[in-house]
Nucleic acid binder design. Sequence first.
DNA 1: GTCTATACCTGGATAGAC
DNA 2: GTCTATCCAGGTATAGAC
Lengths: 182, 182
Amino acid sequence: MSDKRIEILDLAENLIRTKGYNAFSYRDISGPLQIKNAAVHYHFPKKSDLGEEIIQRTRKKFQLKNKEWSHYSPQRRLDNFIALYEENQSLNLVCLVGALGSSYESLPENMQNNLSEMSREIRIWMMELLKEGLAKKEFNFAEKPNEKADLIIASLLSSLILDKVIRENIFKSVKASILKGV
Amino acid sequence: MSDKRIEILDLAENLIRTKGYNAFSYRDISGPLQIKNAAVHYHFPKKSDLGEEIIQRTRKKFQLKNKEWSHYSPQRRLDNFIALYEENQSLNLVCLVGALGSSYESLPENMQNNLSEMSREIRIWMMELLKEGLAKKEFNFAEKPNEKADLIIASLLSSLILDKVIRENIFKSVKASILKGV
DNA sequence: GTCTATACCTGGATAGAC
DNA sequence: GTCTATCCAGGTATAGAC
């Protein structure tokens, strides 16, 4: 994969996760990268091609982490997962699911499908993690694993949004709550 | 306030909460309401005027509820607050903070400010509610009130987003988790 | 792989008649 | 308060030269 291609993807992802998919244009890419719009279109003919590839590579990154973490304890895997959000927060970035999901109905179909699949994958991963933690008595909570999983992924997602809106460290609070609750 | 004005606000709010602020246009308003773009501009000269008023009236609605609920028990106030999200979910709508917050940096300044103030107000309300519930021994949880408050408002916000993306009843899970955790 | 040039559309917004 | 008409900026996208 060429350097330019990656630079375009990186910049576009950043734009999506600060301004949203519908608020950035090819100019916002070509300007900073000092190329012309047509060059961006060469790499990604349609805007939705760009959007789709950003989702797909995010999904792949997550899958790689999974493999890497597969023999870690549930607690450590949970810590690592939360650390991903902590990094986003320090970069002042919303996560991709939050950035795209809130305007789901405005997205091209290929992006909707990719986004849904990735999100389901993360959710199932979290459920399995929690089940295993319960079984190994590393965790202790009253909710059903799917309920707890949904609470965790939902609260992490929004913590990044609310951080920007409220300008308080919501992520930190949410992290503390989650860790005290498992 | 004229009927047309309200019709415009209602429709625009719906569009924001399904497609996002940047994905709808004056045509999306004027078409369904069978008027012309210029008529919409008469009521709301700039798009951001429309956006701002939608935030402001949402904030006022919340303040009215507060007064109405002020002598209810903490548990009942929490139940009522959750019920607001339940209604949104049944209408397939993301909440306003989620819809706008995820693309915060693309918003006009007047909308950013109004959105931030409203969100802070909701957060503080939730913190007070939880503190009171602890003091009255209606609630029992290990986290600090601000940590718990952030967990609750964050998870409710995203539950509506994830509901759409994952197409499972994430809201229901989150609701169960919250109620078991206080 | 990047450029220039351009096509075509949609967007927000305003002036002025009714 | 709503209309027609119009403006202009910006958006996505493509053709064809280099």
